[in-house]
C-alpha cells in the first residue's frame, strides 16, 4: 500500500511543483492590470479586497489577432506533423525491418542529433537556406538555377525547421510499434494473395496506428507553441502564438495580457490533445 503511494506521489509532486504552481502564478497575473512597477502588475488582493477580473480575457476576444495566430499556429503545426509522418514512417519502417546490427546503428543515428544543441542545429539551417548559403550555391554551381532561391524567412523554412527538429519524436514511437509487428501476419496476408500494397494498407498500417497517433502528438503539441523556429527561420508574416506571446510580454510589457494569452493557449491546446488521446484509446 505505502509503496504504491510513493510511486504515485513522486510524479504528482513533480507535476505540482513544476506545472501546477507556475500555472497558478500565471493564472493569478492574468486577472490583474499592468503597472509601471516591479513586478509590472497590480496586486490581486489589496487591503483584503479581491481586485481581479476577466478583462484581459475579454480583450483577447476583441482583437482578431489572437484567434488568427492561434489558428495559424494550429495550421503550421498540423502541416508539419503530416510532413513529419510522411518522412518518418518509411524511415521507421526501414529501421524496424533492418537486420540486427544495422538496426542499432540506424536507431543511434536518429538520436545522434540530440547531442548538439537544438539552437545550434536551427542556426545551421540558416546557413543552409540563406541567399548565398550552401544549398543556393550548390544549385547555382550546378546550373539548376540562375538566381538564388529565397528560402529563408518563409513558411517553407519554418516547415523544414519543425520537421527536421521533431522528426526523431515521430520515428521513435513508430519504430516501437513497427518492430513488434508479427511477421507471420504479413506472410499470411501474402499467402492469401494480397499484394504488398494491400498488405501494407490492411495489415501494417492499422496495426501501427498507436505509434502514428503517439508520434503525431509528440510533434504536434510542441510545434503549436514553437517560438524559436519561426523566430529564426520564419518571415515577418509567419504568425504564431509564441511570437504574439513574446510581443505582449516584452514589447507591451503587459504581463497580465501575456498571462491571459498563455492560459488561453494552454486550455485551447488541451482540446486537440484530449481528442488525440481518445483516438489513441480507440486505436
Amino acid at each position: 500500500m505505502s509503496r504504491r503511494w510513493i510511486v504515485i506521489a513522486i510524479p504528482m509532486l513533480w507535476l505540482g511543483i513544476f506545472f501546477l504552481l507556475p500555472f497558478i502564478e500565471v493564472a493569478r497575473i492574468s486577472l490583474v492590470d499592468p503597472a509601471i512597477a516591479r513586478p509590472p502588475y497590480t496586486p490581486l488582493f489589496e487591503d483584503g479586497a479581491f481586485m481581479g477580473d476577466l478583462e484581459n480575457y475579454a480583450f483577447l476576444l476583441s482583437d482578431s489577432l489572437y484567434i488568427n495566430s492561434y489558428l495559424s499556429s494550429i495550421r503550421i503545426a498540423a502541416v508539419s506533423t503530416v510532413l513529419a509522418l510522411l518522412v518518418g514512417y518509411p524511415m521507421a519502417y526501414a529501421i524496424a525491418r533492418a537486420p540486427e546490427p544495422r538496426r542499432t546503428i540506424l536507431l543511434f543515428l536518429v538520436i545522434l542529433p540530440f547531442w548538439t544543441s537544438f539552437l545550434l542545429r536551427v542556426y545551421a539551417w540558416i546557413g543552409l537556406l540563406k541567399g548565398n548559403g550552401v544549398i543556393n550555391n550548390v544549385l547555382l554551381w550546378m546550373g539548376v538555377i540562375d538566381e538564388p532561391l529565397v528560402m529563408l524567412q518563409t513558411d517553407f523554412a519554418v516547415y523544414v525547421g519543425i520537421v527536421y527538429t521533431y522528426l526523431p519524436f515521430m520515428i521513435l514511437p513508430l519504430y516501437a510499434t513497427l518492430v513488434k509487428l508479427d511477421e507471420s501476419l504479413m506472410e499470411a496476408s501474402a499467402d492469401l494473395g494480397a499484394s504488398r500494397a494491400s498488405t501494407f494498407l490492411r495489415i501494417t498500417l492499422p496495426l501501427s496506428l498507436p505509434g502514428v497517433v503517439a508520434g503525431c502528438m509528440l510533434v504536434f503539441i510542441p510545434a503549436i507553441g514553437e517560438y524559436v523556429i519561426p523566430a529564426l527561420l520564419g518571415g515577418p508574416d509567419t504568425l504564431m502564438i509564441g511570437r504574439v506571446l513574446w510581443d505582449e510580454y516584452f514589447r507591451n510589457r503587459d504581463w497580465p495580457v501575456a498571462s491571459a494569452v498563455a492560459i488561453a493557449m494552454l486550455l485551447l491546446i488541451v482540446l486537440p490533445i484530449l481528442w488525440m488521446q481518445k483516438m489513441q484509446e480507440r486505436a
Partner: peptide, 19 residues
C-alpha cells in the same frame, strides 16, 4: 504611456504580418 505602447505594438504587428 502604456496605452500608446499597446497601440504602437498592435500597429507593428499589422505592419509585420499584414494582420
Amino acid at each position: 504611456d502604456s496605452r500608446l505602447d499597446r497601440t504602437i505594438t498592435r500597429l507593428w504587428t499589422t505592419v509585420k504580418t499584414g494582420q
